[in-house]
């Protein structure tokens, strides 16, 4: 949703990563987009996955109202098991509220209990490389990304992962994001799915119901991860 507005840090790359890893396995993936001002979609609850990226404060304000008009559809989708992937701004807007750096409070969708408050000092942001350890179907996986957020998120009772390097939900925090089996809400840009192929496959598995996905040659991705993990976790 809102790829035009919520695409600040290369977040559209997440869709490209899903598309790529589906295509090489012969899995059909059809991408629909909803932009601000588009006619209302009736079929939100029929999607396998709903994706929201991150945007600037100004853009998040612009679309908040439109997004709220989808509260029921998104809530139904969540209940029906549609996978929800939400990065940064998308993550914040699914919580109870978001108070931005201009001290302006935006109501969130309230799908989850967490809430976010940003410092009014615009320079007070968590910025940098980040590694969190998440659990995907019981297996630990180091998820690499880049965080850049002014908001501090409180009340996430089911975090996406434990912060190994970087901040996470709050400055100097121990945990990052919010996760359910079919929900990943996180501050990680990168784009997230380009840096973490197993996470991408986890999502594809959940969306298609295919438990054993065909293995791909991930040597470039793995080498990229090795170098970064070695540098960031020393």
């Amino acid at each position: 949703m809102y790829p035009g507005l919520l695409d600040l840090y290369g977040d559209s790359g997440n869709v490209e990563a899903l598309r790529y890893r589906c295509a090489v396995r012969g899995i059909d993936l059809e991408v629909f987009t909803h932009e601000l001002g588009d006619e209302k979609r009736a079929d939100i609850a029929d999607m396998d996955i709903i994706y929201l990226g991150g945007g600037a404060d100004y853009e998040q304000q612009q679309l908040a109202e439109d997004l709220i008009s989808y509260r029921k559809e998104l809530s139904d989708a969540h209940k029906n098991g549609t996978f929800m992937l939400m990065i940064c701004g998308g993550y914040q807007l699914m919580g109870k509220y978001y108070k931005d750096s201009n001290d302006k409070k935006i109501d969130g969708l309230g799908l989850f209990e967490y809430y976010t408050e940003a410092s009014t000092d615009k320079r007070d942001r968590c910025i940098g490389n980040i590694v969190v350890e998440a659990e995907l179907d019981g297996k630990k996986y180091k998820v690499i990304g880049f965080e850049n957020h002014g908001g501090q998120t409180f009340g996430s009772d089911k975090p996406f992962g434990r912060t190994l390097c970087g901040n996470g939900n709050v400055r100097g925090g121990e945990y990052e994001g919010y996760m359910e089996e079919r929900v990943i809400a996180t501050y990680l840009h990168g784009p997230l799915l380009s840096k973490n192929p197993l996470l991408t496959d986890y999502i594809i598995s959940k969306c298609t119901g295919i438990e054993q996905l065909k293995k791909l040659d991930d040597s470039l991705e793995e080498r990229c991860r090795d170098i970064l993990l070695k540098r960031l976790l020393k």
Binding site: Y9, S12, E16, N129, F146, N148, P191, S194
Partner: peptide, 9 residues
């Protein structure tokens, strides 16, 4: 800039 995500644009 430490963030290289711009290459995806």
């Amino acid at each position: 800039g430490l963030d290289v995500s711009w290459i995806w644009d």
